[in-house]
Design a protein around this nucleic acid. Structure first.
Length: 256
DNA sequence: ATGGCTACGATCCGTAGA
């Protein structure tokens, strides 16, 4: 099974690129973030024509997440239970014997800001949610835009980014608390080339200079990590005209 | 020089992303 996550930065603008990418990459399951669309504006029909069922937790202008799958989606759940939040950042579903949680973690804006404090509270809520999910679903995938670069090797210029939002110690500690639940960063299950990133700033020729961060991740519970045969980032869509600023992260899983 | 793009929803600029 091929499972992917992609922050598309507007489903409306990116739909043609998404359809092309689905046809080329042939993923079985795709987690999408930053739809920037209400449920009513989500292109269900176009994706059905492409062979995908969809579970959507949409929001106008900001946020919004969805799971696409070539097999039926079951037990769809929205948001973090017990964490009051207007922002649509989480959707989960059962698919092909897996539990898939799609997340769009807060950006945090700047260390010390109100949004940064919200980000840290949100991660605590996510951790508690995933702790419970793992007890119910041993075969768990958590995929999405985490807005955290876990280590300095996930940052193009660690010196320039030192202490900044996305790399600060409290954010990285929140990330490590997710791993402490027993989840594994699929990307680091394998030997990887240096300077592989999933996001590049639109400004300053970020992509051309490979001035990026690895902030889009696919976490796997132990039984799934054991059956993971590849974890990569597909830079191809980032090279197109009018791209998302994020590239898809992709895993190959052996599933029973 | 703390900016530089891009998307959105409001106008002809502000908010947000990362």
């Amino acid at each position: 099974m091929k499972l992917a996550t992609w922050n598309v930065n507007s489903i409306k603008v990116r739909l043609p690129q998404l359809l092309d990418w689905l046809a080329a990459a042939q993923p079985d399951v795709v987690c999408l973030q930053e739809l920037k669309s209400a449920d009513a504006g989500f292109p269900l029909a176009a994706l059905a024509d492409a062979g995908y069922a969809c579970a959507v937790n949409g929001q106008k202008t900001y946020n919004g997440v969805a799971i696409l799958a070539r097999s039926p989606l079951a037990e769809i759940a929205m948001d973090l239970p017990g964490f009051a939040d207007e922002q649509k950042r989480v959707i989960a579903a059962g698919v092909q014997g897996l539990r898939v949680v799609c997340v769009y973690c807060p950006n945090g804006q700047a260390v010390g800001s109100e949004k940064y404090e919200y980000k840290l509270r949100w991660f605590a809520g996510l951790r508690e949610y995933l702790r419970v999910e793992l007890t119910k679903h041993p075969r768990l995938v958590v995929a999405g835009d985490f807005n955290v670069a876990p280590e300095d090797r996930d940052v193009h210029d660690p010196k320039a980014w030192e202490g900044q939002v996305h790399v600060s110690d409290p954010e990285r500690a929140a990330w490590r608390e997710l791993l402490a639940l027993g989840l594994q960063d699929s990307f680091r299950l394998f030997e990887q080339p240096e300077k592989i990133f999933s996001w590049w700033d639109y400004r300053m020729l970020g992509f051309r200079r490979n001035a990026g961060l690895r902030i889009d991740h696919i976490l796997l519970s132990p039984p799934l990590a054991q059956g993971c045969t590849a974890s990569t980032i597909d830079k191809a869509p980032r090279k197109l005209e009018r791209p998302s600023d994020h590239a898809p992260a992709v895993v190959e899983l052996r599933v029973g």
